[in-house]
Amino acid sequence: MSESRGLLKSHIVKKYWMAFTGLFLILFLTGHLAGNLQLFMSGYAGQLQFNEYAVFMTTNPAVKLLSYVTYLSIIFHAIDGMMISIANKKARPISYAYSRPEKNSIWSSRNMGVLGTIILVYIVVHMQNFWYVYKFGSTPFMMNEAGNAPLLQDGTAVAGGLIENGSVFLNGENVGVAMKDLHTIVVDGFTNPILVGFYVLAMIALGFHLVHGFSSAFQSLGLNHPKYNPIIRKVGYAYAIVVPAIFALIPVYMFFM
């Protein structure tokens, strides 16, 4: 190897980036989960709440900036992870005939690449299911509770308004952008038991990924101290169980409601 420098100059630097992007994505998951909790609200109020939230998430400039950082983090985490996986395999070209890795390490820690791949496939499917449809697909639009007037993005009902190309027209005049009805897309999507099953499986994979990933990120960044290690381990385990479980509960709840 030559005198390499820069962003990925060594295994250890690659691990810093894994840890750094991983911890950022853990923060992202927390925010995403908080938003998703609105799906537990029922009736028209819940539908309106969620659709207004969708408008906020797609129009607020700060949120937009954060979303780009999130996309970059996911892509970087995946590519960096693949590079590390290749280096891992290269370091032992001939494997043992008989090995007992379960004697010295947890399963998650040895299968981060496989778990990550499942999560990456899930992210692509998930983006197609909702993000792509919301942005580019043909979505239904949000109406007022009586169902006779379309809503603008700010939530005002336009009596007698007509929707064309995503905008509301009143007497031939464009009065604003119509609020899309993402809630109905989500509700419709989770009537499919295969999709619900896939989402649950992906969240189990995420849980196992986090069981190792959470505390491992701290170790990679050199944050290892007898005073804080037990806290990091306990919070990591709790996070790895609770967050994916609530994520998985949402499609299951919607399927049965």
């Binding site: 290269k90 010295n104 390490s105 290892n224």
Partner: peptide, 28 residues
């Protein structure tokens, strides 16, 4: 040709001298 560290902790368990993972964090 040694590989990257995945923080599995297998080394610490198998080390005959009980060298701690704390050292890897210090190296990082």
């Amino acid at each position: 040709g040694f590989g990257p560290c995945s923080n599995t902790g297998a080394c610490e368990i198998e080390c005959p001298k009980g060298i701690s993972l704390e050292n890897i964090a210090r190296m990082n």
